[in-house]
């Protein structure tokens, strides 16, 4: 098999995940896109490992070992990420990352249209829970 097939598919999947990370608003959808990016890297690792295990004289199968490690770390990441998203949702009542602007720097005086009312509710909720 030509090596370009898995490499190109991996690049396209990575860029799809990149678009999802940048364009999505819901935090869980952002986590899904991160999973897509990790899977693209996994496909590249496996393809290059299969190529090198036949082309090289001696191989450590490092690509497949790293793929297994990446899968395990991705599972840990999704667990922690979902725990954080759920904690944020409990405190703030939303999982839209556009509205979590507490640590944002810059022009605080002119929030965007529609941001003022939910922000006020959110701070009220945060104070009520503490």
């Amino acid at each position: 098999m030509h090596l370009a097939y898995p490499a190109v598919l991996s690049a396209l999947l990575f860029c799809t995940g990149l678009y999802g990370v940048l364009a999505r608003r819901n935090a869980i959808l952002v986590l899904m896109s991160v999973e897509l990016m990790l899977n693209a890297v996994n496909l590249d690792l496996v393809a290059f490992d299969v190529w090198l295990s036949k082309a090289a004289v001696e191989t450590l199968h490092s690509g497949q070992a790293l793929t297994l490690f990446t899968i395990a770390i991705a599972a840990a990441e999704i667990g922690i990420g979902l725990a954080i998203v759920l904690a944020v949702y409990r405190n703030r009542g939303t999982s839209d990352i556009d509205r979590l602007r507490d640590s944002a720097e810059g022009p605080d005086d002119d929030p965007g249209p529609g941001d003022a009312a939910p922000a006020a509710q959110d701070t009220e909720k945060a104070e009520a829970t503490t």
């Binding site: 869980i28 986590l31 979902l82 759920l86």
Partner: peptide, 9 residues
């Protein structure tokens, strides 16, 4: 896990 997260939020 993702589906559970979607449901819980």
């Amino acid at each position: 896990l993702l589906l559970f997260g979607l449901m819980l939020t």
